[in-house]
Design a protein around this nucleic acid. Sequence first.
DNA 1: CTAGATTAGTTAGCATGCTAAGTAAATGGT
DNA 2: ACCATTTACTTAGCATGCTAACTAATCTAG
Lengths: 161, 161
Amino acid sequence: MSSLPFHETLDLSLCGKLGRVHRICRQAVTQAVEPLGFTQPRWTAMMHIHHLGEGCTQHQLACSLDIEMPSLTRTMKQLEENNVIERRIDKQDKRCRKIYFTEHGQAQLAQLKMRISEVKALLYHGLSDDELNAIAHALVKLENNAQQCCDNISENGSTSE
Amino acid sequence: MSSLPFHETLDLSLCGKLGRVHRICRQAVTQAVEPLGFTQPRWTAMMHIHHLGEGCTQHQLACSLDIEMPSLTRTMKQLEENNVIERRIDKQDKRCRKIYFTEHGQAQLAQLKMRISEVKALLYHGLSDDELNAIAHALVKLENNAQQCCDNISENGSTSE
DNA sequence: CTAGATTAGTTAGCATGCTAAGTAAATGGT
DNA sequence: ACCATTTACTTAGCATGCTAACTAATCTAG
């Protein structure tokens, strides 16, 4: 059963497996950081803000997170309500809202980084760097193929001649 | 940038990458079968019913799909409304609803199988069997690690002594 | 300088996973 | 035989992604 080649295994659950692993990994991290008041989209946003640097715009953050603006808007509101970030309208470009950590947010970030690295160690346990790299590259290929797939279909879908 | 080892790449998006690839793959398949009236949960369910054999129960199907019953209930209703399946209460055990394809459903299934195998070929383009197997095994490990992670936390969370 | 296009962000509402809590049937202990 | 538990399924409502359509600010032509 479990010795089937990958493409056979996935015959019935192509996307399913990815989705399932995604959900369960998300849950693992979420459980670890829940006591701090963070859900997955919130902690992910925190880490990316940290990475981009304070003062980044929501647009930059959405690109970094690879999600759409409306998805981000919701998370930003929550983080603001929880008093971990604040958004200040840019003086130069009044459309932009730049993101900063509050003092409380800084402290939370430090906690987050610790907990996340702990969970990450658990998740990656028994997986060599080679395996991790293999997954990463295969995922990138899959993503690109799927992207092309979508593009082709949407082109041919409307202008079919 | 893209030459970072996997664990570095994922530092900021641990679950994110999986989720993204999942979403884009799902979209690729969905676009292909949309003309037939199937969304991802619907076509996946169709394939699994086919695999389990007509007459399977919703519970069996949910296990096969690895989703919860309420998620399945919604999909079953939709498939029934679209006249591709019907559910008959089991004579032996009146709690169970056994699933059968309608005639229309049989025809749709044949169409589905064709389209899906086409998309699958596109998605797997450029990925060797070795790579696919590597991904599959790594995903299984990740899933198991995450599962243990969740279990540990929920144990220690409440009975902490 | 003003009209139209672009860009940043929001709001509204859909899709699909989930959990919690309900119903109805089957099962099991006394 | 009857009450408690378990099982199959449903309903209600949350979480987090999305798209479509909006506002407000900026940019670009003329």
